[in-house]
Amino acid sequence: MTEADHSIHVGAYQFQSRLFVGTGKYRTFEEMRDAITASGSELVTVALRRVNVDNPHEPSLLDFVPQTARILPNTAGCYTVDDAMQVAYLARAAGIGTLIKLEIIGDQALLWPDPIATLQATERLAREGFTVMVYTTPDPVLAVRLEEAGAAAIMPLGSPIGSGQGVLDVSSVNLIRERVHVPVVVDAGIGSPADAALAMEQGADAVLINTAIAQAGNPVQMAAAMRLAVEAGRLGFLAGRMARRPRAEASSPSEGMVAGRVGSS
């Protein structure tokens, strides 16, 4: 057994899989269900929106989320602390536990988190007994402040939501990892399995992926690819990367060369 088999703890919740997935932007609920299954994820994000009162019999998303996965409601679309608090209370009233993905946006075009409102809401939600997973900027100092405020997980963005640009400041993942004790989850911007593996190699405890799977040519296949990438990156992190060197260092012995072949191609 390798260390990668250790589970990840978020507050009182425990997950074997280090891949968390979103449920937005799928072409059909069936495709979403199959992708979640292929991802092996045990934590899936959802949003809270008004019921279409003119069409109350629309199928419910929750009917298509595998029973093995826990629901993580988000506060997507909120721009103030009060908005986020209201969504969190509503999500709790819907009866799926204390987990909440806090997301307060400060810039609409970038969907960039508002760090000040996010810190304030983290404090309030934690005080009210929520298990707060905080979507935030990749800022090592803010990460420490969020943990002090009661965050159960720090979720720095890799690049803007839905952009698929990857993890633009990969070194920040490691800097945050070194400074907080709660899990660090790279959330937003991951576009490919390579991005996911790189984030995990840098010490992320998990990654949260939505668009890269949902909008892939074949979402179910991509979900399986992301699962493997997350496992590979995690194992690589645990194994410990070799040191980088400025020049070559031969892998084959430099002694005992067959004389006549020296210099030959």
């Binding site: 979103g22 449920t23 937005g24 932007k25 799928y26 979403m32 994000t45 959802v46 949003a47 809270l48 929106r49 008004r50 019921v51 009162v53 419910s60 998303l61 929750l62 629901i71 409601p73 988000n74 997507a76 509503l90 819907a94 939501i161 839905g162 937003a188 949260l208 939505n210 668009t211």
Partner: peptide, 8 residues
């Protein structure tokens, strides 16, 4: 009246 929908 709200409910859960797809989201990231």
């Amino acid at each position: 009246i709200v409910r859960f929908v797809g989201g990231g």
